[in-house]
């Protein structure tokens, strides 16, 4: 029985019926001196107490704990709706209605963003953009400006990957290639101050490179590490991508030796990532660093489930490590999730 209100009604009816029977119905065959009525009453009371604990109080405590977790932002509304228990049908309907309203608001927001994105895409016809960039590259080569040509080529590759490809999941190899391109563009800005290192275990490379991750998972994290970590640091900034796998997971660690963050900021950021908070409006939010990470984290959790996502380790003045955990989805690599 899913609803607590129904359980309570049933429990009260049973309680009333049993107690009435025990008090009113004569038990002549037990004899006048037999204290059986009281024994039976006591047994019934015990039975109802135990039954009440399992049938009412325990489910109520579970529901109260779920509500508290929802209020504190630990679980989303969908989990509350999928709960095996509910207070009453009307409370469930209220929740569903609220959820629909929230989803509708999200959908409106999403469609607005998609419309903006499409408008942007239409304004800048991708082929027109690539052709123009190729034109600039040719001109630069003819003028003997090799570095400008390289930079334009990198920019064209970056746009081709981010705008033209529409699939949700890409291989790690493709994502790494885009990261290298992005880093190349940034190196024109920062010069030799920036260094990118990518490390993996040779024996795992064949599986790791084919593993699938959401498109644009790594580039925003690297961008974040450059802008909020190494850019503010004096001296060489090293960003290191470490790729590892276990039987069921791919773990990507993006580590920088930048300025890091303090205990409170780290706690706040990990709290947001844990709760799967929606992306705040960057125009009103001062620290855009968290925006990229929460965005990537939300996409991972939406695609693979809430047991995957991002966790951040950091120490003020010493650097930050972003650990991205996704299921291992490469073919022939053990159990596949989801």
């Amino acid at each position: 029985m899913k609803y607590l209100s129904f359980r309570l009604q049933l429990y009260l009816i049973l309680l009333f019926a049993v107690m009435t029977l025990l008090v009113l119905i004569p038990l002549p065959h037990l004899g006048p001196d037999f204290p059986g009525r009281w024994v039976l009453l006591l047994a019934a009371v015990d039975l109802f107490a135990v039954g009440g604990w399992f049938f009412l109080i325990k489910p109520y405590r579970y529901l109260a704990s779920q509500s508290r977790k929802f209020m504190e932002g630990f679980i989303p509304m969908t989990d509350l709706l999928e709960s095996p228990m509910m207070y009453s049908p009307s409370s469930e309907q209220t929740l569903r209605r609220l959820s629909q309203l929230a989803v509708r608001a999200d959908a409106i927001d999403l469609s607005k963003r998609q419309a903006q994105y499409r408008a942007l895409q239409n304004q800048i016809n991708p082929h027109f953009l690539y052709n123009t960039l190729d034109g600039i590259r040719s001109e630069a080569l003819l003028a003997g400006m090799d570095s400008l040509a390289d930079m334009t080529e990198a920019l064209a590759s970056f746009f081709r990957y981010t705008i033209s490809r529409t699939e949700n999941l890409v291989t790690i190899e493709e994502e790494l290639e885009n990261c290298r391109t992005y880093f190349k563009i940034q190196q024109y800005r920062f010069g030799s101050r920036l260094r990118l290192e990518i490390a993996w275990d040779e024996e795992d490379w064949e599986v790791i490179r084919k593993a699938l991750i959401p498109k644009l998972t790594l580039q925003p994290v690297i961008e974040n590490s450059i802008i909020h970590g190494t850019e503010l640091k004096i001296g060489e900034g090293v960003t290191r991508i470490i790729l590892e796998r276990s039987q069921t997971r791919t773990v990507i660690r993006v580590r920088d030796n930048g300025v890091g963050m303090g205990e409170e900021q780290l706690r706040e950021l990990n709290g947001k990532l844990r709760a799967g908070e929606q992306e705040p409006d960057s125009s009103t939010h001062g620290r855009e660093g968290g925006v990229a990470l929460t965005n990537v984290n939300n996409r991972i959790r939406l695609i693979f489930g809430e047991e995957y996502g991002i966790h951040v380790y950091s120490m003020l003045g010493e650097g930050t490590e972003v650990e991205i955990s996704v299921p291992l989805t490469a073919p022939g690599a053990g159990e596949q999730k989801p």
Binding site: R255, N257, E263, Y313, S314, M315, L316, G317, E318, G319
Partner: peptide
Amino acid sequence: FNNGTVEMTADLGDEEQRGSLDAAIYHV
């Protein structure tokens, strides 16, 4: 491990990470 959470990890075989952790422990 600080105040109920793991704040940083490092491979001690990696000289750079070890040095960074050393400095972090001292500074923070």
